[in-house]
């Protein structure tokens, strides 16, 4: 699924500068705890989280994740946005809850992938 479609499904707003026209997402994981997310095994994944500090970007960086979606209307802090721009990771925010965000993406065809 293209990031543009994910943005539409979640009615999300982009918070960063990185271009995302060609980014294809193959699977998604959702967690507020980064160690749970780090056990997620898929490449080209999407991370949904309510954690709005720079460690969600560090986690995405280690996992080669291109996009982080902040759920429950969380606003990213400046340090998060700065690090994401430096690492060319797209950050979006949606007002939907974690449960609803995951459900909407799953219904639209984005799978949960495997745990490594």
């Amino acid at each position: 699924m293209k990031l543009e479609q994910i943005m539409e499904v979640l009615e999300a707003k982009v918070c960063t500068d990185a271009a995302f026209d060609d980014i294809e997402i193959l699977a998604a994981c959702g967690s507020d705890l980064m160690s749970d997310a780090l056990a997620f095994g898929e490449n080209k994944g999407l991370l949904l989280t309510g954690l709005n500090n720079p460690q969600c970007i560090r986690t995405a960086e280690m996992m080669d994740i291109n996009c982080v979606v902040l759920v429950r209307g969380k606003e990213p802090d400046d340090a998060l946005v700065t690090l994401a721009n430096e690492k060319e990771i797209v950050v979006m925010r949606t007002d939907y809850s974690m449960y609803t965000s995951c459900g909407l993406l799953y219904s639209a065809g984005l799978s949960g992938g495997d745990i490594s």
């Binding site: 705890l33 980064m34 160690s35 749970d36 780090l38 056990a39 954690l51 500090n53 460690q55 490594s116």
Partner: peptide, 17 residues
């Protein structure tokens, strides 16, 4: 620590894995 996103008890097992 959990509020900062860590403390799931997955760290050491994940490192070993």
């Amino acid at each position: 620590i959990r509020e900062l996103g860590f403390g799931a008890g997955m760290g050491l097992p994940n490192i070993k894995k």
